[in-house]
Design a binder for these strands. Structure first.
Lengths: 353, 353
DNA sequence: CTGAAAGCGCTAACAG
DNA sequence: CTGTTAGCGCTTTCAG
């Protein structure tokens, strides 16, 4: 019947996990021998090894990585911290996946966390990761300066910035070719006869948004399009605000004939506004968005975009990361991943009279 | 005998991070006092505390959470392991985000990893997480039985299954109402006059796919629709295979008038096939998909779906998880999150003669 | 209020 | 081939 467990379940006298000591006792060997077996070190007889393995299996022993790393020379936790805008957004998902795949080859686990463009949150997450002694960080940022990471960098912690280049610290970065991509989109619209082009952009305090706006304006200037004929709307951080802004623009007496939207959600907001206004407007207003999104090719018209390669950004960041971890001491480098314009229809609408 | 002197530049003799010992020395106090200050324990004079804080700051001291947990009674790593199909997929992203938000309130970091429906990968990830002594696991599965987790569960490790219910182990689970959702979708099509309905489903070894198929068939039977008039295609795991299957189906002499697609990618594959075939077919073939996806409302026709609530699944799973961690010993429970049919157009196409 | 000693689970450096 | 002794960075226990 009962009899067995008179132990108070609330206060486990026995530790949650067996230790090497337990395995050693059961196998009738010393603890160091167990250690050798668990780490596939040489100098253990095949027979002893099997006794140890057997004992470990019977106890369901699980080595404690943290304990081992405490003493292990230059011990790595085999853990990396990843900070992205939000793990729920597709760009971050693709990037995360690429990082994970590279990490897996090195038996490295990845902590992922969302910034929500909140500087305080960034600091908190970084702190939490450091206290867990991650081997390094791959990060998007929300702070205006990342100089607070300098001490960490000096300790030899690899730091690779993604999506946005770092400010106040020299470190590796992998980013999209934002200004050029925006310029390409703008040129594309100009080539299709547009001069009254509107720019709808994200929050001005976001580096990539600034870069894209810069690319847009520069291209206008270098193509000789008068800036007076363009409208610039910024600080559109959500679908709804973008939609409203597009509505406003397109209801003007002399509306723009083309729109360049500098971000995913903004593009979608614009598409909604266009659909709201009906095919008259949709078919006469050109649209090129920055950043591709799922199903952009299935819409009507299909959406022309300047696509970023999140997967590649993640893969290159991971590559840089592990190179640093392996001792690469070369100067910090910024890797620029080029964007590519994908013409699908919405961007090829010609300017009307 | 070891001691200092011979400094090898490549191999840092000095440790990467300062320890409490260093802080204690600089502040001129004992190590335990530093410990007290860092953990906000009482019985430290305000003055001593500030000396310690100052020293810690000057050394840029970062407590080592792992070292602390080693001895701390019932030490938590404040880390949770999350296993999803792929961190790149939107369903997983939303779920992940909900888990992260709940975890953040408990100062808990989350490891995320992708299964790719690979049982071996699942085992490997679980092993890696356990060796890092996560406080528990929130997981989707790829294995046919999760009985291998029983020892872990007996140790008191919280286990919460999401998306799929566990097999071979009794544990908490939070899942969508798959069979019911599928039945709802099916009924919706029948109510719009369809009897020749095709089911396009995911791999048969995936539990949720089986459930959805079951719901589909049961509803057909209970509505008195002859099964002979339906077609069932399974093992469609990718967009392309779904598209091809839909092409095949719709080219039959007597094609189905409605399609129920049991998964995201399958739905999209079907939409592509429909678009390939032109508006004649698109406007006469009804489609209801299981699982919502971004922009489903912007397509033409907008796609009617049975939507899952990934955010809620994640939130409830996290709630269950932390309840267990806090000592909840109530019987394992399976929480069923209901799906909701969102009629947008594609599912309301009436059956033609 | 403060600190010395012991030890968490493991690996490093040496013995045997 | 195997085991012993330290001690990683911290918390616990217990003595001042």
């Amino acid at each position: 019947m009962t009899s067995l467990s008179s132990v108070d379940p609330d206060r486990p006298q026995i530790p949650r996990y067996p230790t090497m000591r337990h395995v050693a006792a059961l196998a009738g060997v010393g603890i160091k021998t167990v250690s050798r077996v668990m780490n596939n070190e040489p100098n253990v007889s095949i027979e002893t090894a099997s006794r140890v393995l057997d004992a470990a299996h019977r106890l369901n022993y699980r080595p404690n990585l943290h304990a081992g790393n405490l003493k292990r020379a230059g011990g790595r936790t085999q853990t990396i911290g990843l900070l992205v805008s939000s793990v729920a957004n597709p760009f971050a998902g693709a990037l995360h996946r690429a990082v994970e795949d590279a990490a897996r080859e090195r038996d490295t686990a990845v902590f992922a966390a969302s910034l929500d463009d909140d500087p305080l949150r960034e600091r908190g997450i970084v702190e939490a990761f450091i206290q867990r002694r991650v081997d390094g960080l791959i990060l998007t940022t929300a702070t205006s300066s990342q100089s607070y990471l300098i001490p960490e960098q000096q300790r030899g912690t690899p730091l690779v910035f993604v999506d946005r280049t770092p400010v106040g610290i020299a470190a590796d970065a992998v980013v999209s070719d934002n200004a050029n991509g925006a310029a390409t989109a703008t040129r594309h619209l100009i080539q299709h006869g547009h001069t009254r082009i509107a720019y709808l952009g994200d929050r001005h305090d976001i580096q990539t948004a600034r870069e894209r706006k810069r690319g847009f304006i520069n291209e206008l200037v270098s193509q000789g399009v008068p800036l007076a004929s363009t409208t610039i709307v910024e600080d559109l951080h959500h679908e709804e605000s973008a939609r409203a802004a597009a509505h406003r623009l397109l209801s003007l007496a002399d509306p723009p004939t083309a729109i360049f939207s500098s971000q995913n959600l903004v593009t979608i907001g614009v598409i909604r506004a266009l659909q709201d206004l009906g095919s008259d407007v949709t078919r006469t207003t050109a649209l090129v968005g920055f950043d591709d999104f799922p199903l952009s090719d299935l819409l009507d018209p299909a959406v022309t975009v300047v696509a970023q390669n999140a997967q590649q950004i993640g893969a290159l960041a991971a590559e840089r990361f592990f190179a640093r971890l392996d001792g690469d001491r070369s100067p910090e480098q910024t890797t620029i991943v080029s964007t590519v314009l994908i013409a699908r229809g919405s961007g090829e609408v010609r300017a009307h009279a």
